[in-house]
C-alpha cells in the first residue's frame, strides 16, 4: 500500500433524488463528496431549498428531516407525469427533469439451476412481458436474507423487444442458495438512468478501472452535481429459493 499524492478533488454536491409510483413520501438526499484519502464521512447538505413540481401544477417544497434527507409532502408518482427538480445550494442552482416511465408487471420469478463444475448455481429469472414499444429499460435490486446485493442489474429491450424475458439475474456479488429468502425489486427506469447505472457499472465492476476508461457517470442533473434524479416505477416480489 502506498500514499499517493492525489489531487484534491473539487468537493461536489451529490444528489440522490427518488420518486416512485408508490405512496409517498419521496425523498432527496444531499451530501458532498470528499477527497479520496479522507475517511468516509460525507458532509451533509442541510436546510437548503429543494423543490419538486409536476406538470399538473403541484409545487412541493421539501422538508428537511435528518441525515441530509429532504421529504415530499404533496408530490405523487404517476406514470407519464413529468417532474422538475430544483435545488439551490450556496447560490448555485441545480435542475433536472424526468418523466415517469411506463410500468411493466412482474408476473413471477422462476429459479433455474446451473451446474458450474462441481457447484450448483441458482439463478432467478424475472418473468415479465416487455411492451411493444421499443426503449423499455429495467433495473433489478436483490435483497438476499435481508442483505442488499451490490451488483447493478440492468435489462433493456434492444434484442427481445415485445417478448417475455428469459434472461436470469446474474449477480457478481451474492450467490443464491437453496432456502434463501430473496426480495426481487423490479424498476422501470428512464434511458438517462439506465445510462447512468450502465456506465457506473463499467467503472466500478472491476475495482475502479482496469477494463474501462473511468469518468463520472453522466448525471441527468444540470449544474455540475454528481448523482441522479430517478423517477421510477417499482414493485417487489419475495420468494424462497427451492
Amino acid at each position: 500500500m502506498i500514499e499517493l499524492d492525489l489531487d484534491s478533488g473539487e468537493s461536489k454536491l451529490v444528489v440522490e433524488a427518488v420518486i416512485t409510483d408508490q405512496p409517498g413520501a419521496h425523498y432527496v438526499k444531499l451530501l458532498k463528496s470528499v477527497n479520496f484519502n479522507e475517511p468516509i464521512v460525507y458532509p451533509l447538505v442541510e436546510d437548503v431549498l429543494v423543490i419538486i413540481t409536476d406538470n399538473t401544477g403541484v409545487v412541493d417544497t421539501l422538508q428537511y428531516t435528518e441525515s441530509g434527507i429532504y421529504q415530499t409532502s404533496k408530490i405523487e408518482g404517476v406514470v407519464g407525469r413529468m417532474y422538475d427538480l430544483k435545488i439551490i445550494v450556496e447560490n448555485k442552482t441545480y435542475t433536472s427533469r424526468s418523466v415517469m416511465p411506463a410500468k411493466v408487471p412482474l408476473d413471477t420469478n422462476v429459479v433455474i439451476d446451473f451446474q458450474f463444475g462441481p457447484t450448483l448455481l441458482k439463478y432467478i429469472i424475472p418473468v415479465y412481458k416487455d411492451p411493444q414499444e421499443l426503449g423499455n429499460r429495467y433495473r433489478f435490486l436483490l435483497t438476499v436474507n435481508g442483505v442488499q446485493d451490490k451488483d447493478i442489474l440492468l435489462f433493456n429491450d434492444n434484442v427481445n423487444n415485445g417478448q417475455y424475458n428469459g434472461q436470469p439475474l446474474r449477480s457478481s456479488d451474492i450467490t443464491i442458495k437453496q432456502g434463501d429468502v430473496v426480495e426481487v425489486e423490479m424498476q422501470t427506469i428512464t434511458d438517462e438512468i439506465y445510462n447512468y447505472y450502465y456506465t457506473l457499472n463499467q467503472i466500478t465492476a472491476r475495482g475502479g478501472g482496469g477494463g474501462s476508461t473511468p469518468a463520472n457517470p453522466p448525471s441527468n442533473i444540470s449544474g455540475g452535481a454528481l448523482g441522479n434524479f430517478s423517477v421510477v416505477t417499482t414493485q417487489t416480489k419475495t420468494l424462497i429459493i427451492p
Binding site: L6, G9, E16, F36, T204, T213, A215, L226
Partner: peptide, 24 residues
C-alpha cells in the same frame, strides 16, 4: 492517467469521483 480524486455515497455504495481524462 485517470485516478479517482474523490468519493461519495449513492444508494448506500461508495462511488469514486474523477476529474478529467489523464489529469493525474
Amino acid at each position: 492517467v485517470t485516478f479517482p480524486v474523490g468519493k461519495y455515497n449513492l444508494n448506500g455504495q461508495t462511488i469514486y469521483q474523477y476529474s478529467a481524462r489523464n489529469a493525474n
